[in-house]
Design a protein around this nucleic acid. Structure first.
Ligand code: NAD
Ligand code: NAD
Lengths: 211, 211
DNA sequence: ATTTTATTGTACTAAGTTTCACAAAAACTT
DNA sequence: AAGTTTTTGTGAAACTTAGTACAATAAAAT
């Protein structure tokens, strides 16, 4: 690799990997930069540039070999397989995410949920919900590093602290409170309210010119 | 306004507005660039620059007037108040979002849900779920422009088409299929699986150096 | 009235990211 | 074998966004 793996690049690589897995399962053997570009919504030149940066070569007029790309991306991105996360705040959104099928078959698993008021989930789920007092011990015992935060806005800050004190090093934050990344704990904020407001703004600005 | 409202800027403005509303409800009257910067996670200079670009002046040593800023941001961003959205795919994530309290009190309202297999929601919710055959007529009758897409991955593309054919002009897409913005329909993709993989990647790369 | 302090406003700088454009090369066609 | 087509690989250009540094100035303190 010649350069630095920047933030956007990593996201694209993760998306390439997902597409490549799907293509492989369909029996494809090679893929072109424009196929991958279409699939993840970027220009073909950017796909080529990404692979060029990672020194992943293709074949002139023959595209890229899917097995090779998959394997190499696996080495670069690391196996996320069998890694575990926990969810703090098992309300509406926390419970929905806990049941996400994309996780079951995929790269990681929800190891447990935690809540101030732990409520039993449908028995069909093997997932257990524990009181927050057990969070630190559980994370420690199971080497949990990544958490989803889905508590009410009012307790977001204290929950953030609790997660950090429990050894969590990465948080996907669904509360509207903007948490900040520190050297010890990386935050990704997802603010659905802002996303929708933004969509409205763009739609309105976009006008009704088209057919 | 002197420049163009770029993508990132709009998101910051939406966040400023949210913070200003909260500050106002707490009785504050003025705010400094560093307060806002802290709240939304950007440098104070960027806050000032944003307001400078929009010709929203503050007072040297006196900060910015909250009422004034709020009002002006309202004019720039447009009132999203009382705007309505629909949700296509009332499964786990669709139902969770339909019940999001941030919407009830906030800027918009979920007008209805749609599903191939409409299932009754808890009676406590006033929201109704209709079969997808009624989508186009409903959107037309109620001037719905924005939708949340939460159907299974396999039907994401056909659902996308259905939404566009129903006159929808903005979609917040939760399926892992990367949909593309067209002149008539703006797409914002949220891919939670990729977000978590990305977090794992960064956490692992970050190492365990800190305390 | 003068000095000190706090804070805005902005020109300039820097960094990051994507697209353009086209040469190079491999594969296919006739 | 020569020509045509397709697709990669990449340097340079373009674009977008954020950060630095500091002059300007209003308020507060002395
Ligand atoms: N559950 C999560 O936490 C989560 C997180 C991120 C992304 N997603 C994505 O969101 C989507 C929905 O996930 P889910 O977990 O809610 O699944 P789900 O199976 O619980 O819900 C899907 C719903 O869509 C309905 N549906 C099926 N075909 C339809 C069609 N053609 N038109 C309209 N409705 C249709 C189904 O009846 C069902 O109610 C998936 O694409 C998933 O990948 C889910
Ligand atoms: N529902 C949505 O679609 C949605 C969408 C985007 C963002 N959010 C945000 O996600 C968060 C959760 O939303 P929700 O709709 O699931 O709310 P919810 O009230 O259904 O769930 C919150 C859960 O957190 C638990 N909780 C309260 N205090 C806690 C604490 N100190 N520690 C641990 N758990 C605690 C509650 O018992 C409850 O189970 C909110 O911040 C909300 O703004 C929700």
């Amino acid at each position: 690799m010649r350069g630095t793996l920047n933030k956007e690049l990593v996201i694209r690589l993760l998306k390439y990997r997902r597409i490549l897995t799907q293509l492989k399962s369909l029996g494809f053997e090679k893929v072109f930069s424009n196929n991958l570009g279409d699939a993840i919504g970027v220009a073909p030149a950017l796909v080529r540039k990404d692979f060029s940066l990672l020194v992943l070569g293709g074949n002139k007029r023959g595209g890229y070999n899917i097995d090779y790309l998959s394997e190499q991306l696996g080495l670069i991105l690391g196996k996320t397989n069998e890694q575990k996360i926990i969810i703090l705040g098992m309300g509406k959104i926390g419970t929905a995410i806990a049941q996400y099928k994309g996780f079951l078959q995929g790269d990681f698993e929800v190891a447990a949920g935690f809540d101030v008021r732990p409520v039993g989930l449908p028995e069909s789920l093997s997932l257990k919900v524990y009181p927050i007092e057990e969070l630190a011990a559980f994370c420690n015992a199971n080497s949990i590093q990544v958490a989803i935060l889905a508590v009410p806005e009012e307790v977001a800050t204290e929950s953030h602290k609790l997660l950090k004190d429990s050894g969590i090093r990465g948080i996907l934050n669904f509360t509207p409170v903007e948490l900040k990344t520190t050297p010890n704990c990386i935050i990704h904020n997802i603010n659905i309210g802002v996303e929708i407001e933004n969509l409205f703004f763009q739609v309105i600005r976009n006008g009704l010119s088209g057919a």
